[in-house]
Design a protein around this nucleic acid. Sequence first.
DNA 1: TAGTGGTCTAGACCACTAC
DNA 2: TAGTGGTCTAGACCACTAT
Lengths: 238, 238
Amino acid sequence: MAKPDHAPLYVQIRSALVARLASGEWKPGAMLPSDRALAIEMGVSLGTMRKTVDSLAADGVLRRHQGKGTFVTEQTPELANYHFFRLVDQHGERVLPQAGSEVVVIIPAGPETQRRLCLGVGENVILIDRFRTIAGRPAILETVEVPAALMPGLERETPLPNALYPHYQARHGISVISTDDRLSAVAADAIAAMTLDVPEGAPLLLVERVAYDLTGRAVEWRRSRFLSGGLAYAVTLG
Amino acid sequence: MAKPDHAPLYVQIRSALVARLASGEWKPGAMLPSDRALAIEMGVSLGTMRKTVDSLAADGVLRRHQGKGTFVTEQTPELANYHFFRLVDQHGERVLPQAGSEVVVIIPAGPETQRRLCLGVGENVILIDRFRTIAGRPAILETVEVPAALMPGLERETPLPNALYPHYQARHGISVISTDDRLSAVAADAIAAMTLDVPEGAPLLLVERVAYDLTGRAVEWRRSRFLSGGLAYAVTLG
DNA sequence: TAGTGGTCTAGACCACTAC
DNA sequence: TAGTGGTCTAGACCACTAT
């Protein structure tokens, strides 16, 4: 063989399971066969299969429940907010935004978007421009771009829910499991100042994010600007 | 017994190892006994000991090297920068700051500091006020507070190195292994504007951080303000 | 060659959940 | 009671490092 099986068994088994998950063999929320059944089916020992499933559970792809079984992680608004939405107030309590207004259009991907989403020239993206409110006042300005080919018809599914990742999964079979975030501070431009009701030049927290699905594909490029003052993005490093 | 051993064996073993690490039985950089030796010494199976050591390695407390052994993680400037310093430039390349100037004093902990560091009233902290430069220009304004009781004499160890965590470990036996970061955007005040050479009101990225050692104790409360424009705090969620 | 961590196996028993 | 994941054991062999 050109490529010998240098990879450990549990890594190979993991790839096989990921492929079957990506193929839709097990839908979000569905129960997988038991560790024992999978081990027999794939011809490995129980310990090896457990190591594989454990790693997928650690990555958030699967969830284990003692006495019940192993399930494909289902993006719920609560889970997506807990995992991927990191905003807290001055007391450290999680903050949840409410819907504001949105504009959805299809446009050719710009150069920056092409690079972030690894798109070819001429590919279209669906662009969502929206703001969201916290405690009744506009607090988040957000520009979201997704490859049009990945989420056909998304532009007609308005109004979009507040949490987009559960929607991606439920309607388009795209499961976001990780993100790369870049945070910086920017001054509010005229439009942002008007929408968020702050002076022009006021400091805003800018979060630029690329989201990836379980196959490692970049599926979303997002820029969010948050009103500062009492709001912060919280993260634990370790 | 009042508290039965509800905890799994590998968790109990882990606590025992953490206690021995905290006691200084194995210094940073030192090699631990082999898994087999530890398993025999503590009366558990090899598999259980491996699970314990694996979890400590996953938390960054230990590092494993196939064929060599298991070692207590040593804070190096490189490692601390890689793990806990998240600044990147517009191309996504990691940025390393250089020393600027610093002022170190001992003061009674303020109410905010008391809360963040879980200090009693009247306890002193060592306060480090400094700025750091990137590519030759002032870019970071930082206020660091540590309990005076934890790091006796720190105030006389000036000039302090650029990376403080390796210094905490080498001189005071304090190993930072995780941090809670809160990021927001603020406007530059008069002093910040002058030091960083930006207009007053310019947006700065504020990072407020509490650092914890391997026993879970809060050991540092830090507020850093970063010049925006080309610089960003990068983090992966998953 | 000897010692280390890395992988894999085949079993056992426990804790929890459903029926 | 039967089935699930969670833990623990006792061994085997492999890959890597040092000497």
